[in-house]
Design a protein around this nucleic acid. Sequence first.
DNA 1: TGACCTATATACCGATCGGTATGGAAACAA
DNA 2: TTGTTTCCATACCGATCGGTATATAGGTCA
Lengths: 182, 182
Amino acid sequence: MSAALQVFWRRGYEGASLAELTEAMGITKPSLYACFGNKESLFRKALDLYERDKLCYVKSALEAPTSRGVAERLLRGSLAIQTNSTDPKGCMGVISSVGGTAHSECIRDEILARRTSSDRALIERLERARVEGDLPDHIEPPALACYLSTVMQGMAVQAGAGVPVDRLEALIDTTLTMWPGR
Amino acid sequence: MSAALQVFWRRGYEGASLAELTEAMGITKPSLYACFGNKESLFRKALDLYERDKLCYVKSALEAPTSRGVAERLLRGSLAIQTNSTDPKGCMGVISSVGGTAHSECIRDEILARRTSSDRALIERLERARVEGDLPDHIEPPALACYLSTVMQGMAVQAGAGVPVDRLEALIDTTLTMWPGR
DNA sequence: TGACCTATATACCGATCGGTATGGAAACAA
DNA sequence: TTGTTTCCATACCGATCGGTATATAGGTCA
């Protein structure tokens, strides 16, 4: 199963072929279909595994004491995943949600829905930060949350394109230097 | 030709099928191959057209008087392209450079090379901004350039995912609020 | 040993991929 | 009118796509 995740992560939903998936998983196509139904539900299970194993840092990041701590943990956590030497580079959600033919639109919608719910949690955390005095009054939490997600997604594109880790660490430092509030 | 650009832009290199391309262009496959050689060289020509018609704002953006002006023109210019109602959403370079199978690696390399040369121009502009006093001394131009490209690429992902224009305009405002220097 | 049952592996399905060969209509010269 | 040339649309090529039917191998019980 985690072998399937690796393939989807590297190739995206459409770029991952049944041949590559079955070869990586060490099973044959009929076994795959008996166990998982079809490619789409296999992808959903891989996405679940990805969230559980790789996106777990988000939950703890939101528990950081200050808004700056939240941002730092989110950025460093996602960088750690996206440049792990044993995993594909970049973010699986970004890779599978851009481009592709018309067939995979429901896959795209699935990813966008998950992203939306994650964004909502971040907005709520930043709202709390504002009432706690972590953020200046002129900053709108939804806009700041959108900004932070954007930096993370941009970093995912860069990581996927092979930009080395130290450059991305400098990027994080730069972002945190400009962060408004505590 | 611009019809081909639309298809590649929406689908990415691999997601664009010959059937969709020829139908959009109003010609048949033999004509396409007689005129353009093959899919890959057609894509390169589409990329040339994209740079010429859609990325022309970059050149004028780099001529803005201050570093903040450069950032603002780059962000607003790319947003204008990525959310134009007559064109596909998002950035063609991002869409075609993530994911995909192993066949299209040379396409990916092509895009990354163009991105690198564009980044170099931005770094040079920010170096100049620093000697002109537009930027604080603790800011490294390469890191800031990387940061700005990252925000733009993240914005491209968001635009491609259907985030509405006004949200992205707020994102730009937020980014500019935090911009260091003039 | 022999009947049965499960489970995997090979071979195959129609559709589509990128790319090309062929046939037939239009344009021209004599 | 006839022969020739050009050009494009249809039909086709092998390969691969996601998905499945069939056949064979291995284990269980009598």
